[in-house]
Amino acid sequence: MPSETPQAEVGPTGCPHRSGPHSAKGSLEKGSPEDKEAKEPLWIRPDAPSRCTWQLGRPASESPHHHTAPAKSPKILPDILKKIGDTPMVRINKIGKKFGLKCELLAKCEFFNAGGSVKDRISLRMIEDAERDGTLKPGDTIIEPTSGNTGIGLALAAAVRGYRCIIVMPEKMSSEKVDVLRALGAEIVRTPTNARFDSPESHVGVAWRLKNEIPNSHILDQYRNASNPLAHYDTTADEILQQCDGKLDMLVASVGTGGTITGIARKLKEKCPGCRIIGVDPEGSILAEPEELNQTEQTTYEVEGIGYDFIPTVLDRTVVDKWFKSNDEEAFTFARMLIAQEGLLCGGSAGSTVAVAVKAAQELQEGQRCVVILPDSVRNYMTKFLSDRWMLQKGFLKEEDLTEKKPWWWHLRVQELGLSAPLTVLPTITCGHTIEILREKGFDQAPVVDEAGVILGMVTLGNMLSSLLAGKVQPSDQVGKVIYKQFKQIRLTDTLGRLSHILEMDHFALVV
């Protein structure tokens, strides 16, 4: 994948999101292997301009796509893939009243899908469409860049269908997702969380590099694949309309690839034109409109599966009536509230959605109805927002919020430890010299600072030695090549209790 991002070429006709291997024109390309080798690009942008032909009021008969309808489940399912879809609609009884809503608040519980998330729908649909058009064949390999849930859905379907599955996901995604993927037989590649989507090191860039190296491999490409919004247009939206008897006044959905909100909203605009569509985008993402909503100094966020630093091709923002931004604290607070007060075992993005819903639905009156999409299960986040310690460490809970008995030293300040200034190293000294210094002084790690004293990161003896043994660096290389740029900081005025929580999850903390 090139470091400079080429513009994806656009073909003359058809839909841009065809499933299957992508040609340089962004659509299915038939021909000899030699032709494909000559024409197939190194990668295709996940934010390529959409060429979708959908228009409100256009006859369904003019759609270029294969459409399906929700099917009634048999008493005995032939395999677990038949437990994807037909998820329950559940009334939220307490939270709406707590925040003064007059309307009825309903939750579409997508964590009841077989793999635990709304992404099971698009995973199965992308595979079925690729099999139907002859792209996927027995023994082929599926590769997908994902925040985890699409990966789980694909790995689940691949396990049943017999495909090899490789999932490329950023490091910030939970260990629970990784464990589930491994249990399903998927191979996992992790990428830096802070890598831009168009960087060769991003999950998108690495996935395309693997595709170019592995024979008979395919990126189904949830960011561009029409099967993504079509899955929701054909099934999720129809289920909502049936469950609500066609009567709903507002739908609120958090947005990642945009397939969920695009597919549902398009069908609702056709069948229930008075329904307002509300999009939820986390602070630090750029999906919301108008652009002024996205202006923030924050560039990272903890909530998973929603928000991006690019506009995915499948996201149709014209069908969203209003956007709201959400933050991590309210997302996790509301997710825990949904679990504790409503018994809905949902993930953090569901918290984002409901946090926005109780604001947006203030305009609705008694007798009206708001539906929220709860995308995934708490299963993926047992060591994250479900953990009091994690919430404390991230600053989303305060010590006084917890009532468990603490040891005698818990409320003492870090400054009472009488710490001395640490050994520091410059980023320009060599790895070999740094190892000598650390061994001589008896230290395992040291902060790396520039000549102005600005902290650049941390270097550890173990990481340097393993990097040297693996051949990633040489003793003569500058130590700046092996620094940890993500590390926890703590102030002298913070409590030892807070430091204790940090050290339970990290090997060190830097006192500043």
Rank of each mutant, 00 (worst) to 15 (best):
P200W: 09
T191C: 09
L220H: 05
V178T: 02
P33R: 10
R18C: 06
L105C: 07
T260N: 06
G26M: 15
P64T: 02
P41Q: 09
T68F: 12
G134V: 02
K83L: 07
F112W: 02
I143Y: 07
R276V: 11
I127V: 11
G134R: 13
R125W: 10
H67W: 02
C15G: 08
I152W: 02
E213G: 12
E37R: 08
D120S: 07
D198V: 02
P2T: 12
R182S: 08
G263K: 05
L154S: 06
K247C: 14
P200L: 10
G26P: 05
A253N: 11
A155S: 11
E144R: 04
I95P: 02
R209S: 10
T68C: 10
G148P: 12
R58K: 12
L251K: 04
S63P: 07
A8S: 02
E270R: 08
Y233H: 08
D221M: 05
C272M: 15
S23N: 02
I219Q: 02
C275Y: 02
D120V: 02
G153M: 08
P192R: 10
Y223W: 02
K269G: 08
G205Q: 15
R276L: 11
R51G: 10
Y223Q: 15
S61T: 14
Q7C: 15
Q242G: 13
V10D: 04
I76C: 08
P33I: 15
K72S: 02
L241K: 07
R91K: 15
E213T: 14
Y163S: 02
I80A: 05
L77D: 02
E9D: 13
D133G: 06
A114D: 07
L220S: 04
T53N: 14
S199V: 02
A237R: 04
S61L: 09
I142H: 02
I122N: 09
K102W: 05
P59D: 05
E128T: 09
D133F: 02
A60C: 10
P170A: 05
L101A: 10
A38M: 07
M250S: 02
L154N: 02
G263L: 04
T141K: 15
K36L: 14
A130S: 08
E176N: 02
L241R: 02
G139S: 09
V178D: 11
A207K: 07
D35R: 07
I214R: 05
T262L: 05
G31L: 02
H17E: 08
S27Y: 07
C109L: 02
P78L: 12
T87L: 02
M89S: 02
I143R: 02
S19G: 15
T260S: 10
E62T: 05
E4W: 11
T5Y: 12
S123G: 05
V255R: 02
G100R: 02
L77Q: 15
K25L: 10
V10P: 08
P49H: 15
L220E: 02
L268K: 07
K98Y: 07
D140N: 02
T146P: 07
L101D: 05
H67K: 12
S3T: 09
E144P: 06
C103R: 02
L106W: 11
T257L: 06
L268R: 12
I219G: 02
K247H: 15
R91G: 13
L210V: 07
D47L: 02
S73A: 10
H67P: 02
R45A: 10
E4H: 15
K108I: 02
D129F: 04
C275L: 07
E110Y: 13
P16Y: 15
A155V: 02
S199P: 02
G85R: 10
T13W: 02
